Amino acid sequence: MKRLQYDVRKISDNIHKEETEKVEIENMRPGELLSRLEQFPVAYFPLGTIEWHGRQNPLGCDTIKARELCKSVAQKIGGVVMPSVYYAADKDFESQEGTGYGMDGISGMVLPGSFYQIDLELLKKYLINGCANCFNRGFEMVVLISGHNPPIQEEVMKEVSEYFKNKNKKVIYSMECNCVMDESNRMCDHAGGYETSMMLHYNEELVNMKANEGYEQELLGIGTSYPLETSSKEIGQKQAILQIAGMSMWVIDEYKRRANNG
């Protein structure tokens, strides 16, 4: 028996398109999804973690950043935001106290809240399957945006992109902070002045700036060149605006290149 294929004509005869401002796929009805697909058939995958981000920040900091950016860009230029991926790539680090995964090793202790470790081949297969599902259901390009920013995470996204390139499918990827095109205005860190500012912008109720007070090691599990005390909602807003503008231009350009076999 032959395998069924995505058939736009058959679908159009059976499902009425509905206009919608929604961008998150889990909130859409089928007709709303078809309308978004017709207008701009691009899927965004926000990649992040459930991970220690200082005492002051929510554990989902990486994912919140990536998801909010994808939502804003989809609202601005079109496309559909897929469910967030909370597993991510990292590596072991050595400290005087021993070896640990990610910020555990850097901090010298197993920190509460970090639940993102996954076999790297499994993560790659997971992303490949997710992207393939999108292509099989009418999307023409997939965008991977990671709020978790170690080089090994970027390498996994690159491998996924190369896999689909060999199949003449377009998957593009970026760290969320790299969507700021002007490097002189680009910020990035782990749980410091940058990420805390982003959380203050997106949802300040999730941040407790007093949570580090009174501890000998105030910056436990924090890696930054931006002092934590400089964090502000205004800095987060400025970075978000720059990221949205940069990512929107990049996605549109890459989509046009795809359409022109670039």
Rank of each mutant, 00 (worst) to 15 (best):
V143F: 09
V143M: 06
V143P: 02
V143D: 04
L144I: 10
I145H: 08
S146P: 03
S146Q: 04
G147A: 08
G147E: 05
N149K: 06
N149D: 05
N149R: 10
P150A: 04
P151M: 00
I152P: 02
E155F: 11
E155H: 11
M157N: 04
K158D: 05
K158E: 09
E159T: 08
V160M: 02
V160I: 13
S161F: 13
S161Q: 06
S161P: 08
E162N: 12
E162Y: 14
Y163H: 15
F164Q: 04
F164H: 12
K165C: 00
K165V: 02
N166E: 14
K167Q: 13
K167E: 11
N168A: 04
N168T: 03
K169L: 12
K170C: 08
V171C: 02
I172A: 04
M175F: 15
E176Y: 10
E176Q: 13
C177N: 11
N178S: 09
N178F: 08
N178I: 01
C179K: 03
C179H: 01
V180N: 01
M181Y: 02
M181T: 06
M181V: 06
M181D: 05
M181Q: 14
E183T: 12
E183K: 14
E183C: 03
S184A: 13
S184Y: 09
N185E: 15
C188R: 00
D189E: 09
D189L: 08
D189Y: 11
H190Q: 01
H190V: 00
G192V: 08
G193L: 12
E195N: 05
E195Y: 08
E195W: 07
T196F: 11
S197R: 09
M199D: 10
M199G: 03
L200W: 13
L200C: 11
L200S: 10
Y202T: 08
Y202L: 15
N203I: 05
N203L: 04
E204P: 13
E204D: 15
E204R: 12
E205V: 05
E205H: 10
N208Q: 03
N208H: 01
N208I: 00
N208D: 15
M209P: 07
K210M: 07
K210R: 11
A211V: 05
A211L: 07
N212R: 14
N212L: 06
E213S: 05
E213Q: 10
G214T: 00
G214C: 07
Y215I: 02
Y215S: 02
E216N: 03
E216W: 10
E216Q: 10
Q217P: 00
E218D: 02
E218M: 15
L220V: 15
G221E: 10
G221R: 07
G221A: 06
G221Y: 08
I222Y: 05
I222H: 07
I222T: 14
G223E: 09
G223H: 06
G223A: 04
S225G: 00
S225F: 11
S225D: 04
Y226D: 00
P227G: 00
P227Q: 08
P227H: 11
L228P: 06
E229D: 15
E229W: 13
T230A: 02
S231W: 14
E234N: 08
I235A: 07
G236T: 00
G236Y: 03
G236R: 01
Q237T: 10
Q239N: 05
Q239P: 01
